[in-house]
Design a protein around this nucleic acid. Structure first.
Lengths: 207, 207
DNA sequence: CTATTTAGGACATATTAATTCCCTAATTAA
DNA sequence: TTAATTAGGGAATTAATATGTCCTAAATAG
């Protein structure tokens, strides 16, 4: 019978009342709260209002606040990685793909989204010396970004769009620093034009 | 009459027992605690053990936790600015001075100090969308760093060590992003050699 | 319909952390 | 020496909040 459409979406099987909310949507809302307030300053009531869920429901879906956070972190990264991949796929060679990445970050580093900041970076700052498991996720995330950049640079060196004279690994790491820094500086209110100029400058690293 | 040497140091005047500890030393210790644990996760007892002061003494010297934090932040910046200035003064022209700045950051972005991270950046991440007064200080701090870089680049353009063809402002902003990013990435454990390579790459922005 | 399962939200509790308070000791001016 | 004053320390207080527990209503399979 499944008159509740959301129930079908989630592939609800057994009897009983099906879940009414979309888990991913809820996690996306949680990500906003965590980005704005950080981990420790976020209370359960901040989460329940942000997620539009009652506390009982939160505790039914997750063990505790930390579990909500970890799930939110993973979801945040999955969404961002998908967006980034879509942007990269629009580039026709290594250099253009790196360019797309840089543009992606400059877009994310201004205005309201820029002010909210990146959840990975915020975690690195707030929790890296605090929670080993979260630190590991942050490190993994940054390492993957660095590896992705290295791959794109190598592609460019193969297809001729990036000079083979540069060291792909060091360049990728420098690029990573620049990108992360953009998101930090972007929290303090820079204009779209200013961050675009930074993105253009970033490409100097590829020479 | 002033048998306690510390009393004289602090210019104690009236009658009564003089302060026994050095305020700056205490704030330096507090900076370590705040860097490692962030603002919200730092309890007063974390502070008292870190500062080697009892809670009563902390509240005699400061209004509340936030006041301790603001004083710590200001002290942190003063110390770091002095160190940075000393490094800059060793450069003989604009380019060399920028180089010193970049080296200063690469040194700070590895090992234990690197893992602890920069208090300004950690604050930007944790408190920028949370506490307006702290956000203002973070913004001011970053703006000053950007202005300093712009000044050094202009010096280089005047003394001929940096090409006049580059845009000093955009370059300074990009450099700022790269430097801040180094401190973020440095939190996740990079080697001295790796960060030095990034520092070398950073100079490509000056071409 | 009936049994079953889940959301929602109010209420209770227990922990943790910020702040206050008070007592003692130290220091100094007179 | 004495009175005044202030620092230091830590216990006590208070406030916040994370977490756990109900109960009711809703939805569903059989």
């Amino acid at each position: 019978m499944a008159t509740n459409p959301t129930a079908q979406e989630h592939g609800f099987k057994g009897r009983g009342r099906p879940r009414e909310f979309d888990l991913n949507e809820v996690l996306d809302k949680a990500a906003q709260v965590f980005c704005e307030r950080g981990y420790h300053a976020t209370s359960i009531s901040d989460l329940t209002s942000g997620m539009a869920l009652a506390s009982g429901s939160v505790y039914k879906a997750f063990k505790d606040k930390r579990t909500v956070f970890l799930a939110t972190f993973d979801r945040y990264r999955a969404v961002r990685d998908a967006q980034l991949k879509a942007a990269i796929d629009q580039g026709n060679n290594g250099r253009e793909r790196v360019q797309r990445v840089v543009e992606f970050y400059s877009t994310a580093s201004h205005g309201l989204v820029g002010q909210r900041g990146c959840m990975v970076i915020n975690c690195a700052a707030e929790l890296a010396t605090f929670d080993a498991e979260i630190a590991l996720r942050v490190t993994t995330s940054l390492n993957r970004s660095e590896a992705l950049l290295t791959k794109l640079i190598c592609q460019g060196q193969t297809d001729g769009s990036i000079p083979v004279s540069i060291d792909s690994k060091s360049t990728a790491r420098s690029m990573l620093c620049l990108l992360q820094g953009m998101r930090i500086v972007g929290k303090t209110g820079r204009s779209k034009k200013q961050m675009q100029a930074v993105a253009d400058m970033a490409l100097k690293l590829l020479i």
